Simulated scan of single mutants.
Amino acid sequence: MTETLAQPLTDREALPVELVDEAGRAVGACPVSEAHQAPGRLHRAFSVLLFDPDGRVLLQQRAAVKTRFPLLWANTCCGHPAPGEPVLAAAAVRLAEEFGLATTLTEVGVFRYQAQDNVTGRVEHEWDHVIVGVLDAGMPRPDPAEVAAYAWIQPDELRDALADDPASYTPWLADVLEIADAGRKTAR
Score class of each variant (00 low, 15 high):
1 M>A: 15
2 T>C: 11
2 T>Y: 13
4 T>W: 10
5 L>C: 03
8 P>T: 00
8 P>L: 06
9 L>D: 12
10 T>P: 00
10 T>M: 10
10 T>A: 13
12 R>P: 00
13 E>Q: 05
18 E>M: 02
18 E>R: 01
19 L>H: 01
27 V>W: 04
29 A>N: 04
30 C>P: 00
36 H>K: 12
37 Q>E: 15
42 L>N: 00
42 L>G: 00
45 A>I: 01
55 G>R: 01
55 G>I: 03
58 L>P: 09
58 L>M: 05
59 L>C: 11
74 A>P: 03
77 C>R: 08
80 H>W: 09
81 P>N: 03
84 G>Q: 10
86 P>T: 00
87 V>C: 03
89 A>L: 14
90 A>D: 09
91 A>F: 07
91 A>E: 02
93 V>Q: 15
96 A>Q: 14
100 G>Q: 09
101 L>C: 00
103 T>E: 05
105 L>H: 00
106 T>C: 12
108 V>D: 02
120 T>C: 06
122 R>M: 14
123 V>P: 04
123 V>I: 13
126 E>T: 05
127 W>L: 09
130 V>T: 11
132 V>T: 13
134 V>P: 07
134 V>D: 07
140 P>M: 07
145 A>P: 00
147 V>D: 00
155 P>G: 10
158 L>K: 00
162 L>E: 08
163 A>G: 12
164 D>C: 13
165 D>L: 12
165 D>H: 15
166 P>S: 03
169 Y>E: 10
173 L>Y: 04
178 E>A: 15
183 G>F: 04
183 G>M: 08
183 G>H: 01
